[in-house]
Design a protein around this nucleic acid. Structure first.
Lengths: 107, 107
DNA sequence: CAGATCCATAACCAAATGGCTATGGTTTCG
DNA sequence: CGAAACCATAGCCATTTGGTTATGGATCTG
């Protein structure tokens, strides 16, 4: 629970990982090759970031032949949304919409 | 903007800093001395964490004699809430599109 | 005034982090 | 079949990070 929020916060702390997540959320499923091209770093570096994003459940993957397609799993943002709701009501309204979406998306 | 979100994500990536923030949000203003006692680490370590939380505007402080009182500033969470909502609207669009498709497919 | 308390900063250190190249296992293609 | 492409893992390295002790300035207190 708190451990899950920790994984998500740690995963999002790096701007390169946020950029990867943003790209997947914006443009949909992408191969490691495509992600590497956009990130401007080496393919192994991208793979390592993907491991960390997987640990936080922020991405899913699907093997197809020799390529792996990754996709964003925005439901994984729920733990940190919950965390924020715990400690303040200031931004409650701002997050209400998000909470609803996350609940609806939860399988 | 993005730089601000980066500071906030980085500040919250460490569990000790989250615990400090949680304590301030839950129990209100506290001195460095009190925070040190709760954190179970040295006073300089706490001061360094407070510097990082200050950089992210997650805490404010007030000098009173020889002690400094810190308080949580939950409004500073807004940048990451906005960041999340950026993708929530994207999801919403996708959901809307999906709903449209489903309706049109419905006999 | 003299000492004690509160806090910030500096200097240092081990561990974690984020990058790289090298390598190897699958899978596709000529 | 042999070569090329895709990706994950391993090993290496520089930098960052989170902790420590040492120190000093400012403020209370006896």
């Amino acid at each position: 629970m708190t451990a899950e929020a920790d994984n998500v916060f740690k995963a999002l702390a790096d701007p390169t990982r946020r950029a990867i997540f943003e790209g997947l959320a914006r443009d949909g499923e992408q191969t490691v090759h495509a992600l590497t091209h956009h990130a401007g770093i080496s393919q192994p570096a991208v793979s390592k970031h993907l491991v960390i994003l997987k640990r936080a459940h922020l991405v899913g993957h699907r093997r197809q032949g020799r390529e792996t397609h990754y996709r964003a799993r925005p439901q994984a943002l729920a733990p940190i949304a919950d965390w924020m709701n715990l400690y303040s009501t200031f931004w409650q309204n701002r997050l209400d919409h998000l909470e609803d979406l996350l609940k609806r998306m939860d399988p």
